[in-house]
Design a protein around this nucleic acid. Structure first.
Lengths: 225, 225
DNA sequence: CCCGCTGATTAACATTAGGTTAAAACAATA
DNA sequence: TATTGTTTTAACCTAATGTTAATCAGCGGG
């Protein structure tokens, strides 16, 4: 289970449902924020920038559909996952919802199992990464095979090392600030010390044998051969 | 994206759904034909010989299930992909549909993303089905005979073990994330613990005797000899 | 030249993923 | 139904990996 403390916002006017969903999601390690109506949902969304927003269709002060439309209009929520909770009865709204840009539906009454499985698979989908093979001189970095080769020699890197190298090598010559590196490789939520980067850089340099990572003091690192 | 102008027939009596699906599929480069009821679906199927037929279960003038049965009876449509659209929550029909010879089902309301990904993966699967027998060095994996041979030695694997090995071996060198493995071998709806994969991997390694499955920690597994 | 800043290095420490095992739950078969 | 085989879970253990903190080295500015 990848517990990356993913943030989820649930908006529903029925406290019971809110409670059940919250409980189940938290049990699964998600970080949950709730809202009781449409307006509150929008506020909380902006405030917490959740990875997934679960919206009840029927809510006071802006329906789920409206909230979805408003959020989707902003670049910040362009790629945020949105899941609708629908009552069985309203087919019409469901169709509307699709065009509005929701990623999936769950119809009430909700079975916790089904629900969790939906949430999981949504995140699974999100996790689709760019799988581009990088090729710089004699160095090949293939995220698909998770392999790094230098002059035909296979070099085995650990996960973080690989991710770090991949990031740097994705834009050879460009300097990556320590901040950028942290948020790209470690993610915004995780807080790690500054030394951590150095250590990983060191391991990469060591394993590769070639000096392909340059330190730009006071700024960051860049990749070049 | 392999856009070879694949032909898709969609049959549904709700114009809205027809429209949405058609729009999305065409956007993805497929050639789409539609039908409003069961009989029309059969006609159009014969006329256009689509690569994939998407059938709503609930339709006037022959249900999706009936259409499927009729088509499957003809050799012409023996290998055609068939995908069912099922209304909310009728589990019974879903099961029925699969046994009738559908290749997969999507339950309404349909999220475009989910839907497209299903369609893609169906075609992907189709392509794979051509190359049934896998042959890597001294290892032969034949899903037809459900048999695995290493250096002529027949090795008997259980179902899940076989499916798992087959998946990994289908793309030697490629790392499969645990998520991918789960959804490919176990299916999206089933929820099993993380350890389950390990145990099966172990059994395979044990039975094969060769170390052909490599662990990529924090990422997944890959097959290589 | 020495201070202070920055990164390198190292080893110790913490965490986590995955391996291993046995046993329970489930299915298939006779 | 008994029997056998398969799949899943649970508990525990190990090794790989990630992080921290302490120390060291280089460099530029006073």
């Amino acid at each position: 289970m990848d517990t990356k403390a993913r943030k989820i916002l649930i908006a529903d006017d029925e406290p019971d449902i809110l409670e059940i969903l919250k409980y189940n999601l938290e049990k699964d390690g998600y970080q949950v924020v709730t809202a009781k109506n449409g307006d509150e949902a929008i506020d909380k969304a902006k405030q917490y920038q959740p990875d997934l927003i679960i919206l009840d269709i029927m809510m006071p002060r802006k329906s789920g559909v409206e909230v979805c439309e408003i959020l989707r209009a902003q670049p910040l929520f362009k790629d945020t996952l949105i899941l609708f909770l629908t009552a069985l009865s309203d087919e019409g709204t469901q169709i509307k919802g699709l065009t509005t840009g929701a990623d999936d539906y769950v119809s009430k009454p909700v079975s916790p199992q089904m629900f969790l499985s939906k949430v999981h698979s949504l995140f699974r989908r999100l996790k689709k990464e760019d799988t581009t093979v990088l090729q710089v001189n004699d160095l090949t970095i293939d995220p698909d095979r998770f392999s790094v080769q230098y002059k035909g020699e296979e070099i085995s890197l650990a996960k973080k090392e690989f991710e770090l190298l991949y990031l740097l090598a994705s834009k050879p010559g460009r300097v990556f600030l320590r901040n950028e590196i942290l948020s790209q490789v470690w993610g915004n939520e995780v807080i790690v010390g500054d030394r951590t980067i150095d250590v990983h850089i060191r391991k990469i340099r060591q394993k590769l044998g070639v000096d392909c990572i340059t330190t730009v003091k006071g700024v960051g690192y860049k990749f070049e051969l």
